[in-house]
Design a protein around this nucleic acid. Sequence first.
DNA 1: TATATTAAGGTTGTCAGACAACCTGTAAAT
DNA 2: ATTTACAGGTTGTCTGACAACCTTAATATA
Lengths: 253, 253
Amino acid sequence: MTVNSARPEPLQEVIPIRRISLSDKIIDQIVDLISRNVLQPGERLPSEKDLCKRFGVGRATLREALRSLAVMGILDGRVGEGTFVSHNNQRYLERNLQWGLLLDPKKVGDLLETRLMLETQTAFSAARKATAADLEAMEGTIQGMENSVDRPEQYLRFDLEFHLLVAQATQNTILHQLVSMTRGYLQAWIKESLVSPPSRPEDRHRAQTSIREHRAVLRALRSGQAEQARQAMRAHILSSSADLHQHLEQTST
Amino acid sequence: MTVNSARPEPLQEVIPIRRISLSDKIIDQIVDLISRNVLQPGERLPSEKDLCKRFGVGRATLREALRSLAVMGILDGRVGEGTFVSHNNQRYLERNLQWGLLLDPKKVGDLLETRLMLETQTAFSAARKATAADLEAMEGTIQGMENSVDRPEQYLRFDLEFHLLVAQATQNTILHQLVSMTRGYLQAWIKESLVSPPSRPEDRHRAQTSIREHRAVLRALRSGQAEQARQAMRAHILSSSADLHQHLEQTST
DNA sequence: TATATTAAGGTTGTCAGACAACCTGTAAAT
DNA sequence: ATTTACAGGTTGTCTGACAACCTTAATATA
């Protein structure tokens, strides 16, 4: 019993007395059932009327619980059919991330920094795990870019596809989602910065440079040199971010 | 017009026709208001009756939207007072502690890999941006760990707090969110793996080791040596992940 | 008989009204 | 002036009802 251990709880703030609503309890129970695999993905829950009787609550209360779980992507309500356990429990992670990110005044600068980190790391990891099929698909997207240097819309789709393929090659679904998400948010800005000056001659040059950078990344991935892949991706991201930064400062001032 | 560019849309699957419920639309609107800071943290929303008239929906529908946002920690309903915008948007982390169990073992492995990447990078970035206040707060959490080596519950809270402080020190809100999220999901597993064998003697030893690792990270951050901070964090994460990996293989078999 | 149409029942989505539990501020009583 | 009681407003919950929709089976038609 030292002095320190005698102060187990600083009581830093007033006791956060929590009023637990009925729908919260229902949510906890359903989540528990799913996590224990009593309710399996794709399975249909009993009807709302039935669930009301089992839980002993009114339909409004039950529905508030079900809707909450549906919004998070854990359940999936279909009119006229029933309520089902979402088979891709993956989606609720994505939703949660979106809610989290939406609430912040999402600074594009922070996003760019995060993207740099994510993508350099995915390149590193992908160099070790990419399959022949992955590499072939990447080659296809690069050819797609070459064939659409004059169609920014289409070019961007191939560009995005390439980066997603790299993320997919890591075989880490969460990493893939994070990359997909950051790209998703940035895509709007990228598109704007590319479209606003309608097809300048520099765009063609920029596209050629970008394609060379992509090829460098792919080359490193092919040879399985992780560190080299990271550097190549880093160079590409920094290079492509420069335009965005420039465009940002123009619009913000 | 090559073969590649002639295949713009594979029409891979049937059109995912989506039925958008009214409460979903309300959720979108409210989230948008909050993200645009029209509704600020701590602010009180109009009463439900009032909101019903504004949105032109019934109270059940409105409540399903409000409850969904409340469950995610974005809103906070208080009986007799009103509904408020949650000021600590990190409350949704607490809830995710339970939902972490929804992830299957394979995804937990992915999460561990992702966490390693995120946290090593945050340590690197934090070494350059951490303020004196940040460092002092971290010191406090380490002392908290030392004073609670025999109370796993409390120890984990300080542990979590330390890592969140490191993320916060990067001054990158998105990075901070991602670290919060990954830690949040893992926390459920960490807790389970610590509680299942009730207070073995090794736990004390593990805690001491963990504290040393944390100190090493803090030392590197203090001296502003980014690369050293990354390595220290990497060592710590790998060391602390070992237990989880072991626990994972037990449960998956 | 085989196919198309219709009807019935069940299910979710939404609305309206009501009551309980609760908080706050004000007016009344001490 | 302090305490008490009350009234109004707010969220939490229940009940009943109707619309939109899906599935299934019975019915009508070729």
